[in-house]
Amino acid sequence: MTLAAADTIAGLAKGLAVLESFDTERQRLNATQAAERAGLTRAAARRHLLTLAHLGYLETDGSHFWLSARVLRLAGAYLASSRLPRVIQPALNRLASQTQDVYSAAVLDGDEVVIVARSAGLAPVNPLLAYGRHLGARLPAHATSTGRVLLAALPREQLAAWLRGRELRRITAHTVTAPRAFRALLAQVAEQDYCVATDEHELGVHAVAVPLRTRDGRTVAALNVVLAPGRLSDAQLAADILPRLRAAAGEIRQLL
């Protein structure tokens, strides 16, 4: 969405940038660190940090700041009011009860994907689940099965804009980072209408994703399953994994 300068509240944008500076890598920030991450002066970052703490969105020890539980009001409001997670959730639960694997759905947000629904409490505890399985987890789009499905579904102009000047971060030795190779990979994903990502975001993690489309054909999310090593073979992919995902995506499509 393009917004005229006269309609923009710069202070709000800066405050949100400071709030978004906190993530799993940087859970506690001081004013200098927040300024660097949000692209502000230290003085401006400090004012925003203090204001957010006053409003209850941050906690502080006087030097460092960290997110408070109040931030969950924002995420909770999305999950409670957005139709997409509510429509997808029953299908994820049903899939997990059938296979004991972990299923999730993600949407594209800039250079990341965000988990908006996941099968909760049905699959056994698995050490692989450090791979961002919780609601709201953000994962790099270029190195994940869901991200590649969503990028491959973008119109040509939007994909070109997303790729333009972007450096694809190497996360493991298997991450595809060369621009030409990545474009070819997305073309393959678009043609086959699914994506398999192995060891690219986290070693030992194998994920398969398919697009979730509305009845008019728009891709609005991606559905994926995470499998343990040894669970993914060409035969299993063709005979069981893909048919199960595509059947669920077809059911969900009728509701979107």
Rank of each mutant, 00 (worst) to 15 (best):
L150W: 13
I252Y: 03
Q188L: 11
L52Q: 07
A130N: 12
E167F: 02
L232S: 07
E200W: 01
L245T: 03
Y57L: 10
L49M: 11
E202K: 03
R94K: 09
K14R: 14
A238F: 07
A5Q: 14
C195R: 00
T32P: 00
A75G: 12
A187V: 09
T177Y: 06
L92Y: 05
K14W: 01
G230A: 08
L29W: 00
L139K: 07
D23C: 05
H142D: 01
A4Q: 10
S63D: 13
L168W: 07
A105G: 11
L49K: 06
S145Q: 09
R138D: 03
P211M: 05
L163K: 05
A43I: 05
R86H: 10
N126M: 08
L139W: 09
E59R: 15
W66I: 08
S21Y: 03
A228Q: 03
H64N: 05
D7F: 06
L151V: 09
L3P: 01
A10Q: 15
A238T: 07
E36L: 06
P140H: 05
D101S: 02
L3W: 13
L108G: 06
G204P: 04
P140A: 10
N93I: 04
E112V: 01
D234H: 12
I252V: 13
T8N: 15
R47N: 12
E20T: 03
L129D: 15
L72W: 05
W162P: 01
Q188I: 03
F65Q: 04
L128Y: 12
L159P: 01
V18Y: 09
A91V: 01
A178D: 15
E157S: 08
I171D: 03
T24I: 03
L242W: 09
S119Y: 09
Y78D: 06
A4T: 05
R28G: 07
Q98D: 04
V71S: 06
V114A: 00
A45I: 13
G15K: 02
V125H: 14
P90D: 06
L150G: 13
Q100E: 14
A4W: 00
L237F: 13
Q100S: 15
A248R: 00
R46D: 14
L227Y: 00
H48P: 00
A238W: 03
V210G: 05
G76T: 08
L135E: 10
L52P: 01
P243C: 07
A187Y: 07
P85F: 02
